[in-house]
Design a protein around this nucleic acid. Structure first.
Ligand SMILES: [Mn+2]
Ligand SMILES: [Mn+2]
Ligand SMILES: [Mn+2]
Ligand SMILES: [Mn+2]
Lengths: 145, 145
DNA sequence: ATGAAAGTTTAGCCTCTGCTAAATTTGAAT
DNA sequence: ATTCAAATTTAGCAGAGGCTAAACTTTCAT
């Protein structure tokens, strides 16, 4: 392969890896706000303990992350009080929920079992571009009972 | 929701998040090994610079990671020399390539454009369970020209 | 054969995301 | 009102995965 083509290939490939790293840097915030929104809708308020239990991490980990989310303008909280989302947080949660739902329902429609669809969609959702999400939506429209 | 059901829900959900975290901890090794195999097949030998250029990271980052991969028994190298894979490394690369190919071809068959399929598959591949991979394979068998 | 370019390594720094153990605050039952 | 359990926070630690700058080795052209 000549030198020019080699460079082009490297550029194309590195773009994909960069996108994946970028997806990962946004992933945790998305999962936290979506989870907090779910807990608030289910139980009225969200406590740190609920979040830790559902994520499968330690309380202290949640405390530290909530601080970061507060700095990002997604979460509000007073010391020793339950957590709430900002307007921006609710927006992000709603976007995340819609995307997550499409990915999970798509896997189900593809013939995957419920547990697997639930588990796989939790990771896949963060790497699905708008274009792919639309393709999944079309598939659902064609193949939904 | 009664207390028992609440605990059950937390267990189910935390299992999904744990799986995603576990997927991420294996992801980088898989990408490195697959990439090194590709470069060796294309160019005869793989140098650190090639890897860094295609991943879009600094040389020093690659050096450090190669040390870890060597400790994991996936890579062999002598100082200032090109990189090679161990038998285990080649096996992992082959498994990864097959999976990656199925995911990328699946996205194409779903109607996604080439560039998007290339980019999205780079992240999605690591979160696809065997069951989902099989479902994608069935879809390809049904919908391939 | 030697000097410059290309590639590799080291050193030192950073952030993110996890953990445990100990301290603190809140809330509820007695 | 007191006490005690649950929840929260703080403090301190660790490893993964990035970076730049400087030092070192190899390769290649003259
Ligand atoms: Mn997720
Ligand atoms: Mn791959
Ligand atoms: Mn990948
Ligand atoms: Mn991922």
């Amino acid at each position: 392969m000549p030198g020019k083509a080699r460079t082009t290939k490297a550029k194309l490939q590195s773009a994909a890896f960069r996108r994946t790293r970028s997806d990962h840097s946004k992933e945790l915030a998305a999962d936290y706000v979506e989870l907090i929104a779910d807990i608030i809708d289910e139980r009225g308020t969200a406590r740190g303990t609920d979040v830790a239990l559902r994520l499968g991490v330690a309380n202290a980990t949640v405390v530290k992350m909530l601080k970061r989310l507060t700095d990002m303008g997604l979460v509000t909280q007073e010391p020793y009080r339950p957590i709430d989302l900002t307007g921006e947080g609710w927006l992000m949660a709603e976007t995340g929920r819609k995307k997550h739902q499409i990915v999970e329902r798509f896997l189900l429609a593809l013939g995957v079992g419920e547990e697997t669809a639930r588990i796989d969609s939790e990771g896949i959702e963060h790497h699905v571009s708008d274009e792919t999400l639309k393709a999944m939506g079309r598939f659902l429209a064609r193949n939904s009972s």
